[in-house]
Write a protein that binds this DNA or RNA. Sequence first.
DNA 1: CCTCATACTTAGTAATGCTAGGTATAGTTG
DNA 2: CAACTATACCTAGCATTACTAAGTATGAGG
Lengths: 110, 110
Amino acid sequence: MSDAFDNWKTQIKKGYLDLCILLMIRKHTRVYGFDLLEKLAQQDIVLKEGTLYPLLSRMTNEGLLKAAWETENLKGHPRKFYSLAKSGEQLLDEMNEEYERMIRIYKSLN
Amino acid sequence: MSDAFDNWKTQIKKGYLDLCILLMIRKHTRVYGFDLLEKLAQQDIVLKEGTLYPLLSRMTNEGLLKAAWETENLKGHPRKFYSLAKSGEQLLDEMNEEYERMIRIYKSLN
DNA sequence: CCTCATACTTAGTAATGCTAGGTATAGTTG
DNA sequence: CAACTATACCTAGCATTACTAAGTATGAGG
């Protein structure tokens, strides 16, 4: 049985990771998974690979991201690059609006 | 299959509701479920009873809340009043700190 | 040749919010 | 007093996500 706070920390990230990852991809236009993992860690969002990759796959399947294996300059390990699809940009805008709303409510209660 | 945004809105609330409810109870010291439902709705957090009550039960079982059936002045329907337990206050402080951190990261990515 | 770092993948688990009901009491109306 | 409504709380089952804990595969360095 895990600590109440640890458990909450898992829950509070649901949805938040999607948001941050979409923001991060928008910021960098085109990134691959492992690099994204490091960029997120720099922002103090530390994920395991087993958390990030399924998330990227899901968002790609939902049509939010475009994914492409690197084909040119292929020296080193193959990398799968992600970028925002149209519907991903649109969703991100909606998410931002909703999240700002939630922050406002939170602030007003504190 | 639900819309991607609707689905996300469900996910992003996980943990957030706990936080808001603890904040609300702290603010009012002592409230019962149905009243809490209305107070939250006034803040634009609209829940179904089937969402709130299990949540209150869970937090009570975890020792975060103290629950007591109204015994005095018992006219009208019986009401179960909730207030913050020690560990609930403590958890709330930790949650606040973590949530502020998440907001800072979010802002920096946007 | 063996180890390590990079890079991606997958199966299974725990936890929460929602749906869609249900129970019970008190006041109101015909 | 019977029927209805509003108040107040409860519960079973579902869908979804983040995490754990593996595994696969490539290239570089000793």
